[in-house]
Amino acid sequence: MKTTLLTLVLLLMASLLQGQNLAGNWNGILDVQGTQLHVVFHITKEGDTYKATMDSPDQYVSGIPVTLIAVTYSHIKIEMANIGMVYEGTLSDNQITGKWMQSGRSFPLVLSRIEGQD
């Protein structure tokens, strides 16, 4: 009985994430020691794989390649090895709540889906 219940819960969790497509444009404001920087992730899905680039409009930078996107249930991990950054967050509805980690520091970052720009 416990095994059946656990299996059903795991299937439900997996189907919930499948219903929440990560593909699209995600916007957030990174607060680094009082300086606010807008970041935008452009995420696409090719088969079962996600790919992305990031823009930092306040720094006049666009198209920075994302080297890894890993999705486990509602947990999202985005890596940009070229700038030594890792973002880890939890997907819920149209929002990802997490932490931007770079150079040994950690900053909260909430990403929201930009509607109409998928």
Rank of each mutant, 00 (worst) to 15 (best):
M1E: 10
M1R: 12
M1A: 10
K2Y: 13
T3V: 12
L5C: 04
L6M: 11
L6P: 04
L8I: 08
L10C: 08
L11R: 11
A14V: 10
S15V: 12
S15F: 14
S15W: 14
Q18H: 14
L22A: 02
A23K: 07
G24V: 05
W26K: 02
W26L: 00
N27Q: 12
G28H: 08
G28S: 08
I29E: 11
D31I: 09
V32E: 01
G34D: 04
T35A: 13
T35S: 15
T35M: 12
L37R: 09
F41R: 01
F41C: 06
F41L: 15
H42S: 14
I43Q: 00
I43W: 04
K45V: 08
E46N: 14
G47L: 10
G47K: 06
D48N: 15
T49I: 08
T49G: 01
K51E: 06
T53V: 11
M54C: 09
D55F: 05
S56V: 15
D58M: 04
D58T: 12
Q59P: 01
Q59K: 09
Y60W: 10
Y60F: 14
S62G: 10
P65V: 01
V66L: 02
V66W: 00
L68T: 08
L68Y: 08
L68K: 09
V71G: 05
V71A: 12
Y73R: 09
S74Y: 12
H75A: 13
H75Y: 07
I76W: 00
I76V: 13
K77V: 13
E79A: 12
M80I: 13
A81V: 09
N82P: 10
I83H: 06
G84V: 04
M85R: 03
Y87G: 04
G89I: 03
L91N: 00
S92M: 09
D93R: 07
Q95F: 06
I96T: 00
I96N: 01
W100R: 01
Q102E: 00
S103N: 05
G104P: 02
R105H: 12
S106V: 13
S106T: 11
S106L: 04
F107Y: 14
R113Q: 03
R113M: 07
Q117D: 02
D118C: 04
